[in-house]
């Protein structure tokens, strides 16, 4: 097991004063760079899939966050955590699979399209979007989709529980916008699943599958969707526009 300490920065926080979801990915990627130096990850190895399971929010602290990593075959398991004596608290679990990126099929072509645009700050040394940059682009597309349908989508009262990213061909910087196409794939009383693709010129560069849990804004606790809310959201599934 390899352990790295990372100082938590103010800029890692979101408006809820929690670590931004993408920051956990950043911490994992930062630690992976150190694992390259340590020879645990090869310099040419590329992630083909990344799953982040969010356990509990990390609030701002002057104590560094820990990233503890274990590699088995092509799979790297990382936990963003803290230790206080014998007490260990895990905030997020990041699983990265290395390999050769697959071609991602465009799917049914159905979904809600939102424009997405890379920034130079999203790029790696090769000029391609980093994993964290792709996560952020998917998050922004999903947030815009949810905001556009804010009534059906509970006005943001959906907490991200898990996110899986499949990585396709590299997404290079371009002034041209790409499209983030999101579709609801499952709505139950306890969870909502959204699948989002990053598309440019007919190529799917990444696919994100996210699991969201409804929560009560006042108590900040998970809750079940009412039948009316489910019907409203399911209506959104059935009215997904054909691109």
């Amino acid at each position: 097991m390899h352990s790295h300490e990372l100082a938590v920065r103010w800029t890692d926080l979101d408006p809820n004063k929690h670590l931004n979801n993408v920051s956990y990915v950043n911490y994992a990627v930062e630690s992976q760079a150190a694992l390259v130096d340590a020879g645990v990850v090869g310099p040419q190895e590329r992630p083909v899939a990344v799953t982040v399971a969010f356990q509990r929010p990390l609030l701002f602290t002057r104590r560094p966050a820990l990233v503890e990593s274990t590699r088995t075959g092509d799979v790297l398991e990382q936990e963003v955590c803290s230790r206080d004596g014998d007490r260990r608290v895990v905030y997020a679990r990041v699983t990265t699979t290395f390999g050769v990126p697959a071609t991602l099929e465009p799917g049914t072509g159905r979904g809600h399209d939102e424009p997405g645009r890379l920034r130079r700050s999203d790029l790696d040394a090769h000029g391609d979007a980093t994993v964290a940059g792709i996560f952020e682009l998917l998050q922004e597309g999903r947030a815009r989709f949810a905001a556009r349908h804010r009534d059906a989508m509970l006005d943001g009262a959906l907490a991200l529980g898990r996110m899986t990213l499949e990585v396709g061909p590299p997404l290079a910087w371009s002034e041209t916008e790409c499209t983030v196409r999101s579709r609801l794939t499952k709505v139950t009383g306890a969870l909502v699943m959204i699948e989002s693709d990053i598309l440019r010129g007919g190529t799917v560069h990444a696919r994100g599958s996210s699991v969201h849990m409804p929560f009560d804004i006042e108590t900040q606790k998970p809750r079940r969707l009412t039948d009316e809310e489910r019907a409203s959201m399911t209506g959104l599934v059935e009215t997904q526009e054909v691109a």
Binding site: W10, T11, L13, D14, P15, N16, K17, N20, V22, F60, P115, G116, R117, R119, S121, E136, Q139, E140, A143
Partner: peptide, 22 residues
Amino acid sequence: ELPMRWADLDSLNHVNNVVYLD
């Protein structure tokens, strides 16, 4: 013209100062 991002916001719900530089 640059699209704004939700991730640009800070804990005060404003665009973080350093994002202006971005």
